[in-house]
Design a protein around this nucleic acid. Structure first.
Lengths: 220, 220
DNA sequence: ATGCCTGTTTGATCTCGATCAATGGTCCGC
DNA sequence: GCGGACCATTGATCGAGATCAAACAGGCAT
């Protein structure tokens, strides 16, 4: 029997910004695990599309508290700015290959009208939509609901693989969900003990959602 | 001596979507205190600009927990959707007058290129920017930091009036900040006791920021 | 294999904000 | 004026999640 896992196909990218991406591609670039792609307050030069790997974008408070806005997976675009500075930092979670586009060429495409503007509005709107539901999660959900919502979000974005391989560690998940890593770990253990998910073999990053229906009921 | 309070000038609106707003205006509409302007999952027909009053937009969980995404004040636009359903509910906090534009005429303006698309991208990006900093607040700030951030946000949006009149009650503030109304009240009392703000006269909704510098230091 | 580093789980305890509860104020219309 | 529906503050207690702490992997270089 074939077991589908979320090993990313390296090439065929079904872009969110297809009309923009196809033509204006510049080159491919590689980032090491943990390395910074761009920093908060830096001047934006490129827009990025992930060919392989995974990226976290986050904001920091002066004392080091971190909030991860979003995880970006294969095919996702990120880094677009309308203003002259980046609003957050982007880091490669694992070794990551990206395609670059010049920001100015995107802006030019908008100026010229056509599909570019519409695509870009759609892209920004999707980000906004994600942010809005994440505010509901951060403001009003319990820790178990948050972790469940995270699992279901990843499951969907990875197209419901039999075995889900998470690129990020527990601290990343915690900083995405507004929790501590211990609380994330405890929530996962509860879901495991209740038979809703299984840790797969040796690695705690590989997991299998056994009962998606029950998980969906927990996520209010 | 003249005391500036944030009584809104009724007419001159310095719109975020000026290029779109000017031409396509349909008519003015009035909403009673507490009444719904549109509901989550409804089909979007109009985009709104506030002439006077204030609006809250929020999402609900099935059990009634509420997260307010944003407060909209005089001059603000809200209600634009790229999709075929609204992503949240909008309610008038106090008696509110709005200008309506047909959503379709906005979309048409985008299709025709020109300033419309650029304005719309800017509008959605500003919303996204606000959502991103609000995620940091909801995920990682303490209750005192949240309330302080709220006061400074309102202060700035009302252009630093001597006396700030808040249209929303403590529960609204709490649901915006991911807290309970009691915690909001306690935080305000702390700031009052430390001399950073004053409640003005009879109403607890009228307040004066005495030491904006100290407040800015609290908001990490 | 050995040793080190990073990551994860689990347990014990603490604390901030939630919950439960009571009181008083404000703004209404009558 | 008075009654009643909010609305806000404050106090007492509770509890979910944070913090502190320990043990135990797994991965990787040597």
């Amino acid at each position: 029997m074939l077991v589908r896992i979320n090993t990313a196909p390296r090439m065929p990218i079904d872009g969110q910004l297809a009309a923009l991406a196809s033509e204006r591609m510049l080159s491919e670039f590689r980032y090491r695990r943990g390395s910074e792609i761009f920093g908060e307050r830096e001047e934006p030069e490129y827009v990025y599309q992930i060919v392989s790997g995974a990226v976290r974008t986050y904001k920091l408070l002066p004392d080091g508290r971190r909030q991860i806005n979003a995880f970006h997976l294969v095919g996702d675009m990120f880094g677009f700015e309308n203003e002259t500075t980046h609003r957050f930092t982007a880091e490669a979670i694992v070794e990551t290959h990206v395609h670059l586009m010049r920001r100015t060429s995107i802006l030019e495409a908008v100026r010229n009208g056509g599909a570019g503007a519409k695509d870009l509005i759609k892209f920004v709107t999707q980000n906004l939509q994600h942010a809005e539901s994440h505010m509901l999660l951060l403001g009003r959900k319990t820790s178990l609901e948050r972790v469940t919502a995270f699992l279901l979000e990843m499951d969907e974005r990875l197209q419901h693989p039999d075995v889900m391989i998470l690129p990020m560690n527990r601290r990343d998940i915690a900083d995405y969900l507004g929790l501590t890593l211990e609380t994330v770990s405890r929530a996962l253990s509860i879901l495991r003990d209740e038979g809703l998910l299984r840790f797969d073999g040796n690695s705690q990053r590989r997991l299998e959602l056994v009962d998606r229906g029950a998980l969906a009921k927990i996520d209010a």
